[in-house]
Simulated assay, not measured.
Amino acid sequence: MDKLKTFSLKFLPIFLLAATLSVKVTAQQDAQFTQYMYNGLFYNPAFAGKEKGYNFSALHRTQWANYSGSNGPAPITQLLTASGSLDDLNLGYGLTFVNDNIGPTSNQEVNLSVGYHKRLRRGVLSVGLSGGIYSSTLKYDELNLVNPDPSVPLGGRETQMNVNFGLGAIYDNGNYYIGASTKHLNEPGFDFGDGAIENTLKNHSYLTAGYRIKTFAFWTFEPSILLKTVSFNNFSYDVSVIATHNQKVSGGFAYRGEESVSLLVGYSLLKDNSLRIGYAFDLVVGGLEAKSPTSHEFMLTYNLPQVSREFQRVIQRTPRYRF
């Protein structure tokens, strides 16, 4: 199910009815993106500096457009990433920022990633670490409780912050890649309402793999899969196939298990194709009783190549000699 959170829009009132007993849920808490294949740094810190140059991306997702429920508007998520590389040291660095709003909850995540890249056989093995801050806010005045509990405030909001760690690895030989990562290793905890509502950010693990197929007339095809699990108790997956012509125009389809089918399109601008715009449209096919049928995702990426200076030796001529 797409973008399930600890405080699910459908089940939030039920959870809060048992607030005095302390609520613990092991559903998907991380934001999910249809254009996951272009946002590897969000899932795996080993992507930091994997691509040469300086890379920037901005993504906006509107989940279940025009949804109107008893616990707030439709979920909305923003993702910003930036990365660069230190080629002489085989190192890369990256920064991710996530702003995720769903119902009465708002979460912000900032992570700094460091990656190390080493040639291995015919490919490159990358390993990475990440660390940062995770902030969670609960807006009590937007809660819609079936039976109000005196231990839960009637108004205002509460924000708590905690540290957050992750690690990952990926092997890429040009034709295919496979990577594994884990986030929220330390499982930071939040206890809202003086401990009445307990919310632990569970460990999330990801496995990603893809294959690049080069064909005639500048066409390439890339099937990929993203497998997700929460504490190895909850599993879901995304699969996609993207076709690209001449590194400029792309299009494809994706499927999120038992949740939605998606159409993805993209177009690269400028002469060097460094600026790219992307769009994904999701059509929900599962669980429509608790959702609106469509979601939209807009993305902008920019790749700034590293400037390398090459000095050419100039012949110096004098009346006596030259060198």
Rank of each mutant, 00 (worst) to 15 (best):
R61G: 00
K228A: 08
F190G: 02
F42V: 09
F253H: 01
S260P: 03
A82I: 04
F235K: 07
K183L: 11
R61H: 04
A280C: 10
D191G: 10
Q160H: 08
Y67V: 08
K248L: 10
T137P: 02
Y321D: 08
F221M: 09
N71D: 07
L138T: 00
H60N: 09
K3E: 10
D2G: 12
L269N: 01
V110I: 11
N39K: 01
Q78I: 00
P75R: 02
L120G: 00
K5P: 03
N175P: 05
K183P: 01
I133L: 15
S106E: 13
L80G: 03
Q63N: 05
G115E: 07
T137L: 08
F281P: 14
A48D: 13
S83Q: 10
V152Y: 05
G131R: 04
L4N: 10
V163F: 13
L89E: 14
A280S: 15
G189I: 03
V110R: 00
P293E: 08
M37R: 06
G53N: 01
Q312H: 15
G103M: 07
T215V: 12
A290R: 11
L86R: 03
G266N: 03
T34P: 03
E310L: 15
P153E: 10
V23D: 06
L201T: 14
P75C: 03
P293T: 07
G266K: 01
S205Y: 11
L59T: 05
L89T: 04
N66A: 11
A209G: 11
K248E: 14
Y54M: 15
T215S: 13
F15V: 02
S22E: 12
L129W: 04
G123D: 04
I225S: 10
G189S: 12
A243F: 01
R317D: 12
N203E: 14
T220N: 07
L120T: 03
N39E: 09
T318D: 14
I197F: 02
G257Q: 10
L185V: 02
N233H: 10
L207C: 04
T215Q: 11
F33S: 01
T220C: 00
I213G: 03
G53D: 05
S70M: 12
I213Y: 11
E297C: 04
D282L: 13
T34G: 13
S236I: 02
Q108I: 05
S274Y: 05
S236A: 09
D238N: 08
T301V: 05
G49W: 06
N111D: 06
E289T: 08
D149M: 14
N186V: 04
R317W: 12
Q306S: 15
G69E: 07
V249Y: 09
D272R: 11
Y140V: 00
D2T: 07
A31M: 08
F42R: 05
S295M: 06
P293A: 13
H245R: 14
G49F: 06
L283S: 13
L207N: 04
L17T: 09
G179W: 05
G49L: 08
R320L: 15
R322T: 14
L112C: 00
I315C: 05
A31K: 00
L207M: 11
R157W: 08
A169E: 09
Y134I: 06
V285E: 09
P188K: 01
F281V: 12
T34A: 09
N273F: 07
L283M: 15
Y38Q: 12
D238Q: 04
S130A: 09
A209Q: 02
G155N: 15
R276V: 12
H184Y: 07
L145V: 06
Y134N: 03
P305W: 10
L12G: 00
T105A: 13
L288Y: 04
